[in-house]
């Protein structure tokens, strides 16, 4: 078999975040309307490989995904070895706005999954003017902890094994085996304590239940897409968010789980492409 290259390019961006120098890995493919993609907790931008390799998306969109600091090929900031990583709403918001500005993106579409779907709701509430549309995947206003998060980071439990095993059931039953295990592999590769630190935002700091109804979709259109088999952010939770936000559009994706863009990109695209078309029509 001859070698071939995917149309994805990756670069390392240096910028200051939260007053400290950071080295952030950014991937992109395609041309047109910027589509900034946010990965889930404990994973990285590879989750969007399916979109970046699909001409139906990249013909009209510049698809961009960055690995959050501490994730994927992005570095933790100098001094990390003395710290405990914990993601907050304020840091997450700042990071997205700063990186979008550094890339000179003109009112991108922002699409995030899980923690990315949650921060999408924060962005819709606090910074709607910065985006032309917001897409929340597996987006809920809050998730109660349902297992002891300390198991994600302790020396007598292998971090990679447990992170992969924790989320394995969140993949839908029809996902192709290759994509299912690629998705889990990303989890198995996370740094020690990083998935747990992201979940600080997801399960504690990022609770937006009290404010989610204030989102004004006249300022920025909001689309919510959730997989049927997600028991972390259930379809019911997404439907509740949609019901409380007039003008939001919601899709429950049959057979899909918590990682639609990564676990089954082809099935996900049948739901995403009509949304992108609608956004394109303005």
């Amino acid at each position: 078999m001859s070698a071939r290259f995917e149309p994805i390019t990756g670069r390392y961006m240096h910028l200051d975040l939260f007053g400290r120098p950071h080295r952030v890995y950014v991937e992109e493919a395609g041309e047109g309307t910027p589509l900034l993609c946010l990965h889930t907790a404990g994973s990285d931008g590879r989750q969007y490989r399916g979109l970046m390799n699909d001409a139906r998306v990249t013909a009209k969109h510049r698809v961009i995904a960055f690995d959050m600091p501490w994730h994927g090929k992005s570095s933790p900031p100098a001094g990390w070895h003395e710290e405990e990583y914990q993601l907050t709403s304020a840091q997450y918001t700042t990071m997205i706005l700063e990186i979008a500005a550094a890339l000179e993106l003109d009112r991108p579409i922002v699409m995030g999954c899980s923690i990315g779907g949650r921060i999408a709701l924060h962005l819709a509430l606090e910074h709607p003017e910065r985006f032309r549309a917001i897409i929340g995947l597996q987006a809920g206003a809050h998730v109660d902890p349902y297992y002891d998060l300390n198991f994600l980071h302790r020396p007598d439990v292998h971090g990679g094994e447990v992170c992969g095993a924790i989320v394995s059931g969140l993949v839908g039953p029809d996902a192709p085996e290759k994509e299912r295990w690629e998705t889990l592999w990303h989890y198995m590769q996370g740094g020690p304590g990083i998935f747990k630190g992201d979940l600080y935002f997801y399960k504690l700091d990022g609770d937006i239940r009290g404010r989610v109804a204030e989102i004004d979709t006249r300022r920025c259109p909001l689309f919510l897409l959730s997989g049927e088999y997600d028991y972390s952010c259930t379809p019911e939770e997404t439907l509740a968010v949609a019901k409380s936000i007039p003008g939001s559009e919601v899709t429950i994706m049959k057979g899909l789980g918590h990682f639609p863009m990564s676990e089954d990109p082809q099935a996900f695209l049948t739901h995403l492409l009509p949304v992108l078309e609608k956004i394109g029509r303005g």
Binding site: Y146, Y147, I166, S168, G169, L170, P173, E228, Y229, D230, Y231, S232, T234, P235
Partner: peptide
């Protein structure tokens, strides 16, 4: 053979208490 959503994984059962 094909568990419904919420019953497809041990942690799904834990989540539903």
């Amino acid at each position: 053979a094909r568990p419904p959503p919420g019953s497809n994984d041990l942690l799904a059962l834990v989540k539903r208490r």
